[in-house]
């Protein structure tokens, strides 16, 4: 907490509030993750109970002594899936944690009266908000409870890194960042990073599930609550074909802004190079998926390499590489 207590610019009380909201959000999301984990851990038991019930129903019908002709007429009672209470709790906590996180972003923005996208701390907040919002919107349309533990887990990690490592006092921006293109470029960039996080979480599960389907990882019972590898592969692809055009837009908007701020739209600045490398790697992933002998695990590795570069671009290039993007505020 000591880092957050430092005197801030602009509106200290609002930016303090923002810090408190961030910590509360991280705590709530950590609880959400635990709830999702309990749900996953209960998966094998749930399946065993369902199997036992099916067996019981069958023997009960048989015990009625009806002949088989009658048996086929009887509508087997539709299997009502067991209520997944823990997943429900996880989901509610995830909503709560996300609202707290959005509150943290909002108060941070209000404390400096500008879009809160000016330094690494603020990117981390925005990126994790986008990851959560995308996940929750997705959960309204599909059953993605199996992914909850991994998304909340990743987001809590990012939040902790933001609060403990990247924290920067709220302040105004240096002149080259004072541009509407900042909001456009960085908003879309963080949105795509949010999606990259989701896709990476799905790909991680894909590796585990694929291994399990090959006969390994017998002790990872929770994988039974997770869709099969082919579905996971398609799911990650579905997320990435949304993320890729967004990242392409990020690249273009960044070039337009670089032209305004620095007088050239492309200058091989380290940050530009890494943005391009990420773009090329995800393009390679899309190609790999369609190349014989590359689809499946190899393609997924290419996507993971892309995600590793997203992390490097954020965590290392911003801080250690000398370039014109040295705005990390650290």
């Amino acid at each position: 907490m000591t880092t957050l207590a430092a005197a801030d610019a602009a509106n200290p009380s609002l930016s303090m509030t923002s810090g408190h909201l961030l910590w509360s959000s991280a705590a709530v999301l950590a609880l959400a993750m635990l709830a999702f984990c309990v749900d996953l851990a209960g998966g094998p038991g749930r399946e065993a109970r369902a199997a036992a019930r099916r067996e019981q129903a069958a023997t009960a019908v048989a015990a009625d002594g009806g002949d088989t002709a009658v048996l086929t007429q009887v509508e087997a009672p539709a299997e009502v899936p067991e209520k997944r209470q823990w997943a429900g709790i996880g989901m509610s906590l995830a909503w709560l944690g996300t609202f707290l996180l959005l509150g943290a972003v909002l108060t941070r923005g209000l404390s400096v009266m500008r879009p809160p996208l000016g330094n690494m701390y603020e990117f981390a907040l925005a990126g994790s908000s986008f990851a959560m919002v995308c996940y929750l919107l997705w959960s309204l349309r599909r059953d993605v409870r199996w992914l909850g533990a991994f998304v909340t887990g990743a987001v809590v990690l990012v939040q902790m890194a933001a609060a403990l490592i990247f924290y920067t006092a709220a302040s105004q921006l240096m002149p080259s960042l004072q541009s509407p293109w900042l909001s456009i470029h960085v908003t879309v960039a963080t949105l795509s990073v949010g999606l990259f996080i989701l896709a990476a979480a799905v790909h991680l599960l894909y590796f585990l599930q694929a291994k399990r389907e090959d006969g390994g990882l017998r002790r990872f019972g929770f994988l039974r609550s997770v869709p099969d590898a082919a579905t996971l592969d398609r799911t990650a692809y579905g997320v990435l074909i949304v993320a890729f055009p967004l990242w392409t837009f990020t690249l273009i908007a960044g070039a337009i802004w670089a032209d305004k701020a620095w007088g050239r739209y492309w200058g091989w600045d380290p940050k530009e190079v890494w943005t391009l490398v990420i773009w090329v790697l995800y393009a390679a992933y899309l190609h790999a998926r369609m190349t014989a002998g590359w689809s499946g695990r190899k393609a997924a590795w290419v996507a993971m390499a892309g995600f590793a570069c997203v992390l490097i671009n954020y965590g290392i290039v911003n801080v250690y590489f000398v370039g014109q993007h040295s705005y990390s505020g650290m």
Partner: peptide, 26 residues
């Protein structure tokens, strides 16, 4: 397609050193 994929991967690897070492052009 395989060559395109290979070249894309090569490009991503080859671009990295320029961000690590100082560049005369910059």
């Amino acid at each position: 397609m395989r060559t395109a994929l290979f070249l894309l991967l090569m490009l991503s690897v080859a671009a990295v050193p320029g961000s690590i070492f100082p560049q005369r052009g910059i």
